[in-house]
């Protein structure tokens, strides 16, 4: 953790349900996400990786512990402040349904800025759009774009408001390998070129291979981490988990 933390989880707990049906999704997770880094969160289904990201991204409220985004504690924020936090400091890329079908690609990209009532930084917009290669698709509606193109629009939208950190939840889950590679290298470039901080949740070792650091989650706890991963190394590590029967 050479770089200073852009987001931080402190003893994060999340419990779903009550009594017999109680499920502990996060059991006291403490972790720092580095500024200008791409961090991948990996783990089998039910390991709590999505819950961790949702709590970090202020989409879900943890049962215990604290989250800090860019030095701002999230706990205790009211809906209005949370909304502003998401709008101004965070970027989102979801697995699917990232775009508003009634808006064009351009309108979708500028949506967070428009909602905030701010002026779009045209230079920055152009740079982002050119990086994702959407220049000639800006006036199209989502239904006229391929799945890969839609995810690229989502990426551009996540970046255009210059957020402190971008959260991507299985961004390549619905894409073929070629489109996946495009999205991932674009995200990697944005870290290198713009110094963007990114957290990506994935179960795909190839995707994790693009990250600077990989956190492995199992049963709601961080069980391991890997710096400068490659797809093969990640795959190897995953196999190890499977063999020890970590899945419940």
């Amino acid at each position: 953790m050479g770089a200073e933390a852009i987001a931080r989880a402190i003893d994060l707990e999340k419990v779903y349900g009550q009594g017999e049906a109680q499920v502990k999704a996060l059991r006291g997770v403490s972790v720092d996400f580095g500024r200008g880094e791409m961090t991948a969160i990996m783990g089998p289904s039910g390991s709590g990786k999505s819950t961790l990201m949702h709590c970090m991204a202020a989409l879900d409220r943890p049962t215990g512990g604290d989250v800090e985004i860019d030095g701002v504690p999230v706990r205790g924020l009211k809906d209005k402040a949370l909304t502003q936090l998401r709008r101004d400091r965070l970027g989102f890329i979801f697995q699917s349904f990232n775009l508003v079908p009634t808006l064009t690609a351009r309108e979708n990209i500028t949506l967070p800025v428009d909602i905030a009532g701010r002026k779009v930084d045209q230079e920055w917009f152009d740079r982002v759009v050119d990086t994702v290669g959407l220049r000639d698709r800006l006036s199209h509606r989502p239904t006229e774009l391929s799945g890969g193109q839609q995810q690229r629009v989502a990426c551009a939208r996540a970046l255009v408001s210059r957020p402190a950190i971008v959260f991507a939840d299985e961004p390549t889950g619905n894409l073929d390998s070629r489109a996946s590679a495009e999205i991932l290298s674009f995200l990697q470039n944005s870290v290198k070129e713009f110094g963007q901080s990114i957290v990506i949740v994935t179960h795909d070792p190839v995707a994790a291979g693009y990250a600077d650091r990989v956190l492995f989650l199992a049963d709601g706890e961080i069980v391991d981490e890997m710096v400068d991963p490659t797809a093969d190394k990640v795959l190897e590590r995953m196999r190890g988990f499977d063999a020890t029967g970590r899945r419940s």
């Binding site: 989409l59 209005k80 349904f97 508003v100 967070p112």
Partner: peptide
Amino acid sequence: TREIGLLRAVGMSRRQ
């Protein structure tokens, strides 16, 4: 529902 969720996620306030 999903679209509204998305709009809220990217920063649309309740008032908006």
